[in-house]
Design a protein around this nucleic acid. Structure first.
Lengths: 215, 215
DNA sequence: TCAAAAGTGTTCAGGGTACACCCATGG
DNA sequence: CCATGGGTGTACCCTGAACACTTTTGA
């Protein structure tokens, strides 16, 4: 069983593109790196994959460290392995995207990690190949949003149709027609009207909906 | 710069799901493993990522070793990192799919590697998590085939519309209507009629087409 | 009473699907 | 002359897009 030993071993990391919706805009959670290489530069939250954890577990751990959240929706979006992508050492990075409800996060943890929510449109310069990683994650999100029920990850359990529409609009970056949107979303039969009314967004009040079957 | 050293390093491999079209069916190139673990079992062709090569380069190298082909269309389809996925050692595997023209391969190399083309529908039991890798690659192929001009990778430079249609049918696993297919494919304006006629498939002969602009 | 968001239907166009026959040729 | 694959057009349906007014109520 000497076969494996002939070969190189590599640092493997996970990098998380964490999406959240804040003030009607799609935001990404970025950190200021506190260590070299890239100290004080903006980057994605990442971490190394250790011996006893799968890639998915590593991604969950990293997300938990930063936000205090578990059971968050995550998907692998690609793996980045250029030899020189990290100037400090050869690191192969598996990128994940995470979708979370902005209000659920543990703000203390986020602050402690020097992390900040940045609207997509104000994206600063990022370290390494992180711009490509973000681009890939965003492409993934936009492509999947019409095929999988991803949008609900951004919302609380109960939500109004207007809120739901604004999530779509934030992700796709375009305004949608209200009547067409409601017709389409209702045909899906994913939603269930509740008895509750949200009066926070309007004087008249809007019906709150929930997902019909959990997930 | 001691930061990296605290962390584990891992074997990283690439595994290639190599698709080709043979006798009207979608085939995958599989090998009988010649070494432990998994000796004499069917598996995908893979190889370890070395220090001086990117993931993409490693995938190209593996494909070249097996088929003698360069400049083959390849895409990354996912990364598999369960701790115990390889019983011999922890190996994180980046999966690629490759699409190639069956007739271009170097048969000698293929034979030397104990590789065999197997129709998708006759897939044998595969080692490790290779069944999931194949499933992911196939899902990717089917999803992308209507968005990217992947199908031409399976064909020679000149091809008939019937050949093109049979590629779609093999990938999607269903028969298509000839008139609708031709109408749709012609509206795309990707194809250019040539002066050449292929008499090998029929007595009447069929017009040969090529891609309008290279790739 | 008015501003601000909620809620609600119809029309039209374009794309996708279903469908059947003649053509050219080699054997 | 006939078997085989090559090549062609039309009718229908359904999905997706455009579009405007009424309702409710807190301030």
């Amino acid at each position: 069983m000497h076969y494996y030993k002939e070969h190189a071993r590599h640092y493997v990391s996970v990098d998380c593109v964490i999406f959240g919706l804040h003030e009607g805009k799609l935001n990404i959670l970025l950190i200021k790196r506190r260590m070299m290489p890239g100290k004080d530069k903006w980057s994605l939250m990442g971490g190394f994959v250790e011996d006893d954890e799968s890639l998915d577990d590593a991604a969950k751990r990293v997300l938990f460290q930063l936000t205090g959240l578990e059971n968050v929706y995550m998907d692998q979006v690609g793996t980045f392995g250029e030899v020189d992508r990290d100037p400090g050492a050869r690191v192969i990075s598996v990128a994940y995207c995470a979708l979370l409800n902005f209000d659920d996060q543990d703000h203390q943890r986020v602050t402690d990690n020097d992390a900040h929510w940045i609207p997509l449109e104000d994206m600063p310069e990022l370290f390494f190949d992180h711009p490509q990683i973000v681009a890939k994650a965003l492409e993934y999100l936009r492509q999947q949003v019409n095929h999988k029920p991803l949008v609900f990850q951004f919302l609380p359990e109960l939500f109004t149709l207007s809120q739901l529409q604004s999530v779509y609009e934030a992700i796709l970056g375009e305004k949608l027609d209200k009547r067409n949107f409601r017709k389409r979303i209702m045909e899906g039969e994913l939603l269930e009207k509740t008895e509750f009314i949200d009066k926070s967004g309007s004087k008249r009040g809007a019906t709150l909906y929930k997902l019909r079957i959990e997930n």
